[in-house]
Write a protein that binds this DNA or RNA. Sequence first.
DNA 1: AATGAATGAGAATTCATTCAT
DNA 2: GATGAATGAATTCTCATTCAT
Lengths: 206, 206, 206, 206
Amino acid sequence: MSPKVSKEHKEQRRANILEAAKDVFIEHGYEQTTMKHIMDAANVSRGGLYQYFSNKEDVYEAILEEMLGTSMDRTEEVLKSEDPSYWEYLLRCLYGPDMEPDNKMDPLASPSLEFFITGRNDPRRRKYAKTRYYNGLKLFTDVIEQGKISGEFTTSFESEMIARTIISFTDGLALDQAIITKEDVKIKEQSILFIEYLRTILGVKQ
Amino acid sequence: MSPKVSKEHKEQRRANILEAAKDVFIEHGYEQTTMKHIMDAANVSRGGLYQYFSNKEDVYEAILEEMLGTSMDRTEEVLKSEDPSYWEYLLRCLYGPDMEPDNKMDPLASPSLEFFITGRNDPRRRKYAKTRYYNGLKLFTDVIEQGKISGEFTTSFESEMIARTIISFTDGLALDQAIITKEDVKIKEQSILFIEYLRTILGVKQ
Amino acid sequence: MSPKVSKEHKEQRRANILEAAKDVFIEHGYEQTTMKHIMDAANVSRGGLYQYFSNKEDVYEAILEEMLGTSMDRTEEVLKSEDPSYWEYLLRCLYGPDMEPDNKMDPLASPSLEFFITGRNDPRRRKYAKTRYYNGLKLFTDVIEQGKISGEFTTSFESEMIARTIISFTDGLALDQAIITKEDVKIKEQSILFIEYLRTILGVKQ
Amino acid sequence: MSPKVSKEHKEQRRANILEAAKDVFIEHGYEQTTMKHIMDAANVSRGGLYQYFSNKEDVYEAILEEMLGTSMDRTEEVLKSEDPSYWEYLLRCLYGPDMEPDNKMDPLASPSLEFFITGRNDPRRRKYAKTRYYNGLKLFTDVIEQGKISGEFTTSFESEMIARTIISFTDGLALDQAIITKEDVKIKEQSILFIEYLRTILGVKQ
DNA sequence: AATGAATGAGAATTCATTCAT
DNA sequence: GATGAATGAATTCTCATTCAT
């Protein structure tokens, strides 16, 4: 009656496939990746793969789901932390715990942008793109709003519009580094300048 | 004896195909478009199409070539114009003659980003992406540099870095409106805020 | 020590599977039905199902076996009954105890015809089809023959040929109602006419 | 501008494929036949075949279309012929010009029945089955009706019901010979008996 | 040059069957 | 005996590209 292999085992297997799939997507990009690539990377048979995911899109959606979940979690986490400063909080959201911009970006950013842009006429994919956008928008808007309330930010600009700018700029950076080269785009330097901009526009009090 | 007429004819035919192809790429996106789509839109036979272009990539490269040419031309044009103000000059580059940002974007931006991002591992495509990037970089850097020299801009930031920011932000905007929706992205409002930013960071003198 | 109980259990399980399988075959037809369908309907695991039947054909053969058995039984039964009239006896065979044709047909007729016709090049299936045919042929021939001997039927036609006609017509009716629609085929009306025909051709004495 | 290969050539090719496909369907049956079989029999490449027919069902529908067309034509033909006798006319419809039943049946009858019965839950196929049924029904009903009017048939039975019987019986015969064997079913003898039946039930006047 | 029929490689998907636990 | 995860063969279908005319 009870299943031969534990449910955890299935979860594990699924997770393994996803891990392998991520690598493949990072290496080949979304469009170029085939189910065969994933099979080979994950060491699953054709049928095995299809047991877990019904097609390539399904695999990628699972990855996105995970990413969105992770980002939500991180957001929660950050929100709970009794950060003394919304400014630092914002920087942490953008550049990680050390608040130091570097030249690294999420390697899944490229295949994700590819997934979204090649599927921009497909409602299903569009929905994922929107979720991703609005998740970010909510996070940044909230932080800025809180900072305003606390008196840390003295800007007269709309919080939401600033939040949008953060996303647009970040996406642009991700896009450019994907299609050109990390080195060419000077992500780090641009980020530093962008931080300056944000500080100014938000009217961050020392 | 002379092939002049026939050559003109060929040019014409090629141009027609490209016009039709643009429409198709705008409608379906780069990946989804097939040679059949182009054939049908351009009213050419299969063989006819292959006489002018050896594959889909070739067609799109021709379109890019034209776009790059046009942008270079526009740059030249603008540079020659005895614009009294580098600031206005910059705005004209970004938002056209009336310097007013609106919600419209180049409809070819989406398929182009798609072309670049899906082909980011292909040196050939990457080269196009780089050319596009560096063309823009050169233009904006030059203008800012000139503005500095003339004393119109009083910034202490590196011209090139500001130029990069312009490109990244613009690309991000283009990307977001492609994958979400014009309305959702509030291009116009974001652009207005971005102009404010530029004005500040460049230290534009009235 | 004795496997009696477990054997009964197995029989029961097998019977359950067959019952469920019948429903599935009736709903989806033979070809469209997959082992998965049967598993789900019977609430058996994949391996469990294969313990009892080695493939879909095997399942259907078991159903046929049962049907043939039932029909033989019914025949026996009817034969034993001290029916005063072979004519009524014949009608009972065709239309059940009340001898009234109606629009209902055996719901397994359709999947069975499908099973036979799609497998008409397979000796194994053909054998089942023949058994079914000759079972019926034997039954009807016997009844007619008996009726002749008893003087109830006064026909000069060969009993076997009339029996064949009964089968062909019945099969035709089953086929047509399967591929068209019960309503469209007017089974009941056709059956009434067919009874008239039989009465005439058999020369049934009141 | 004008096509390289004449339209007739395409028609010819299509017809060739259909001829080959018929043979294959007759040999393997509808379900067992694959596109590969047809490709090989017709000596076309995969792509070539798909240029003419988009899938197996499409191929078979073309065959059916042709059959229905042919049967309609034959009907027209027969109707135009100033046949002196509706009875002979009817026999010609059923058994060809010589009005002699034989053991041969249309070899496409089996795959067609298979096509209809396996697709009985598919509205598209059902429509073909209905068309086929109602075409026949119309033909036979008309002939019988005419025969009644002319006084040649003196039956009091509904023409339509007799017509239905003709179809059901014919279909039953086709089915049985498909799943058993021509020899086993004694088509010729059954047909002779059926003619007797029809003569009686129609009240054919000498 | 132009045509469009023909080609075939490659990707996706399904499902019967096996087999380790 | 039972389970259900895993396998892989078989098939469908699409499209870029070639090529005879």
